[in-house]
Write a protein that binds this DNA or RNA. Structure first.
Lengths: 150, 150
DNA sequence: TACATTTGTAACCAAACTTGTTACTAATTC
DNA sequence: GAATTAGTAACAAGTTTGGTTACAAATGTA
């Protein structure tokens, strides 16, 4: 999920700085993120299901944010990416010893102990919005984030 | 890294409850973790380099904890697993657009914004020791964690 | 209507990664 | 010397990932 999370954030930050209501095509986004338009559209499917973006087909179509960038957090992105995937930590061995129940007990125990770690990370992710990402990008790109610059 | 982290924790918890100074063979550990002895030995290589365990070859050989279980945290395990691997979050796209520097800027920005999230998770992992994992296992395995039970 | 554009999605391929396995060497004990 | 056990290389099967092509559906425009 590594690159997907990063690419999704990249895309959302791009959409955040685009003209409001002006759809951005998967081709432009792919060019900016350095990937293939179909990869972007695949990602969009996930983001759309999560209610973070809206797309429109046809000429002049593309994708826009479904709500203000200030109301989309990195946790939303994280959850969207995670929804279609296994847990960040797949606790427990794959083939616990059938000969006793230590395997399943280990699973439960690790889940319980990892829980706070994951919760802490979620809280930190929830504190960052896509708007902040965009603003941070603006600071680091002195000339601003124009269409030509990615 | 999913299963490796879990299996490593499993192994360390097992070693923590073993007789102190009594080496445990990779075969026994593999049987408990439901994997292959060679997989365990591979993992041991990493844990040994991280200074968490010590091994001894030959008849009666095996592996013991290199320091008390109360002084080994899940963060130590996490770091050991991560040392030989890419970051948890590979921030930044794989192929940033060469045509401008948004790619690298995005990379820096995401690293800065994800930083607190990763730090929060690390702090939570550092708060849990292998001894706690072992004790938690003991609570959940009423009969205790005997050699026969995994 | 015809056509160009753009998304949605399936299908496929190649590369990378993971896990299990075999095989062999080195070290250690008896 | 024999048995045991770690260390490690090498390989195979399975899974995952990312990129790509192909094509249908939708939408705007002439």
């Amino acid at each position: 999920m590594n690159t997907r999370f990063a690419v999704a954030t990249h895309i959302l930050a791009y959409l955040a700085h685009a003209q409001p209501g002006q759809p951005v095509s998967s081709e432009v986004l792919a060019s900016s993120a350095g990937t293939h338009p179909v990869v972007v559209r695949r990602l969009m499917s996930t983001l759309r299901e999560a209610g973070l973006v809206q797309s429109q087909r046809g000429a002049g179509g593309g994708t826009v944010l479904a709500r203000p960038a200030a109301e989309i957090t990195l946790l939303d992105v994280f959850r969207a990416m995670q929804a279609s995937e296994p847990d960040l930590f797949q606790v427990g061995s794959t083939n616990p010893n059938a000969h006793c129940d230590l395997g399943s007990v280990m699973q439960e125990t690790l889940e319980g102990l990892f829980g706070p770690a994951i919760e802490a990370m979620r809280a930190a992710l929830a504190a960052v919005t896509v708007q902040q990402v965009m603003q941070e990008l603006g600071k680091r790109l002195p000339g601003g984030c124009t269409e030509a610059s990615g």
